[in-house]
């Protein structure tokens, strides 16, 4: 095995990991803060790129295109939120419905083609795979780090505000939140919109990075997002208490995920089996807290309720 090949692949893994880290932060907001598993992201992870690339191909300024991508993602979150709160559909199913509808919508945005390319020499792309080994500021790793820093700063501020606190409260205890006058339906919709807006931003950046948008690029995104959240929980759960640190941990988790994937591929795993591997790894790590709880409940014996 050629170790240099692995080393050469590392900058790409880090860049991809950081871009997916943005996406994973979106997943963190629904999964950890709001306590909702939102499968919309598998769709919105393609929507952002589709909107951004198509607008740019039609001559729209890159920053305007990015903003539109974020707004499109937020609309996807709004749809899931309405399915869930106004129509009483369980959140997982609501997300699946939006995800499915987004498949058609994404194709429509991409003029009914499965993918659309965008050339880095003709268009102003904010990140590109081509520069991943350059030492200069054009390296996508720097750009991704700046976007992550800004995003984490904004989220840290927001979740400290009255409105942000009401979102956290809704995720922590809905009955209590309503008793304190919080409109929990609105809080959930807002959280889903913020989350999917972030996912769409990541999607747009990913399409810049790889130079094309593909209607299937979001498939399994939720699993990658969860993997990043879980890796961060396992590695930094005890260390990172502060909200900003936790978000940083999630981004690092995504980078670790991509480095591990890179190593596994280097070891000779068939690329087509990657998703199976990811799903199994995530399933095991989701199971660990459950097993842990079972074991500790066993030690305490029956009726081992804690009352001080």
């Amino acid at each position: 095995m050629n170790f240099t090949a692995l080393l050469n692949a590392m900058p790409g893994a880090v860049a991809q990991g950081l871009i997916w880290g943005i996406m994973a932060i979106g997943v963190y907001i629904t999964y950890k803060v709001l306590d909702l598993a939102d499968l919309t992201v598998d769709g919105s992870m393609a929507t952002g790129g589709a909107v951004c690339v198509m607008l740019m191909l039609n001559g729209v300024n890159v920053w305007v295109a990015l903003l539109c991508a974020v707004i499109a993602g937020m609309l996807a979150g709004l749809l899931t939120g309405v399915f869930h709160t106004a129509m009483g559909i369980p959140p997982i199913l609501a997300g699946i419905l939006t995800q499915l509808s987004l498949y058609s919508i994404n194709l429509a945005i991409m003029e009914f083609k499965a993918n659309q390319g965008i050339n880095v020499t003709k268009y102003q792309l904010i990140v590109s795979q081509r520069n991943v080994r350059s030492a200069g500021l054009s390296n996508p790793i720097y750009t991704a780090l700046i976007v992550l820093a800004l995003l984490i700063a904004v989220l840290y501020w927001f979740f400290g505000t009255e409105l942000g606190s009401s979102l956290r409260a809704t995720g922590a205890n809905e009955a209590m939140s309503r008793a304190q006058g919080i409109n929990t339906n609105l809080a959930k919709i807002l959280g889903l919109m913020i989350s999917n807006g972030i996912v769409a931003l990541s999607s747009a950046m990913l399409s810049h990075y790889q130079g094309f948008v593909d209607v299937n690029m979001g498939r399994g995104a939720i699993v990658i997002g969860l993997a990043a959240v879980i890796i961060s929980d396992v590695l930094f759960g005890k260390l990172f208490r502060n909200f900003a640190l936790k978000l940083i941990g999630v981004a690092i988790g995504a980078v670790i995920y991509y480095i591990v994937i890179q190593i596994v591929l280097w070891l000779g795993l068939n690329t087509n089996l990657l998703k199976l591997l990811s799903a199994l790894v995530v399933a095991v790590f989701l199971g660990i807290p459950y097993w842990k709880a079972k074991v500790s409940a066993g030690y305490k014996g029956k009726g081992g309720q804690e009352h001080a």
Partner: peptide, 10 residues
Amino acid sequence: RGEKRTLKPG
């Protein structure tokens, strides 16, 4: 409780 939740500090 009962107040509008704004973007002021929590």
